[in-house]
Amino acid sequence: MTFLLDVKGLNVRFRTEFGLVHAVNEVSFSVSKGETLAVVGESGSGKSVTALALMRLLDRTALIDGEASFEGVNLFTMSEKEMQKIRGARIGMIFQDPMTALNPVFTVGDQIAEVVLIHRDCTKQEAKTRAIEMMGLVGIPDSRRRVDQYPHEFSGGMRQRAMIAMAIANSPSLLIADEPTTALDVTVQAQVMEVIRSVQESIGLTVMLITHDLGLVAGFADRIQVMYAGQLVETAERDRIFYETRNPYTRALLDSIPSQLGVPGTELKTIGGNPPSLLSPPPGCLFQPRCVHATEDCRMTRPELKSVGQNHLSRCLRSSDLGVLR
């Protein structure tokens, strides 16, 4: 099988006045053509930093190393100029806040057409036609009229659709969606996820969905990878993550959601404490201080990501003796 995106040994560290913050540590993963990979984690887990590093959108305080081969080229070694040809053309990206991602002084249509003009040799009229077409594709009603409207005339959900239209206007092969619905109401979230799904089917898009919401992932992802404190802790095909959980953090995360299927009013299982400081990560397993299964060994030895089943990796010293966690 060929991978569309193959990331090996990604490290992202930020220089701060207190020293280096290890935001992403030795993250390796790959995305196959056409699949939806969800990257799940809480704030500070490094999920968004991973995406921004791939797009090379981090500022100068970030030190990136590793390898990211995308359609046969390494994203980290190419020049900024070559990277500009990839951003918005081969990889599209949508962000959490559709309110700030659009420029208020240009019409929505202009902004979509602009992205087309940057990457294609075509006339303004052709670009605008493309913009209208894209707006139709993401379900903006009456796109011929709305193409000339300004962002403030769009509601939150419509703006996020416009952002998707912009991200896919050049038929990219990969779409990175960073918390695309976090700022939206739940009924609008449902619409936007439908749009991403239908676009994915109609143009054969590969999607990397970054989110904290395990509910969203349950209905949407093919494969899930869970991150904690800058590390990948578990990755597997969707149902395995939910029903054959092998990593104690994943289990704890699943347990702390007040589910609509659970018994109301009961004590929720919680993860005690807080994530470790990324400035000076403790030795041993990073989740160990909060883990109910931790032993003396976990305090000393940093676990590796190990195979625990078919395409199923988990970072836990005790994965073989703990087995499937429920």
């Binding site: 005690g272 404490g273 470790p276």
Partner: peptide, 13 residues
């Protein structure tokens, strides 16, 4: 109580 433990093990304090 887990709550007390979690505060004591807090970073930054």
């Amino acid at each position: 109580m887990t709550d007390l433990v979690d505060v004591n093990s807090r970073e930054g304090l």
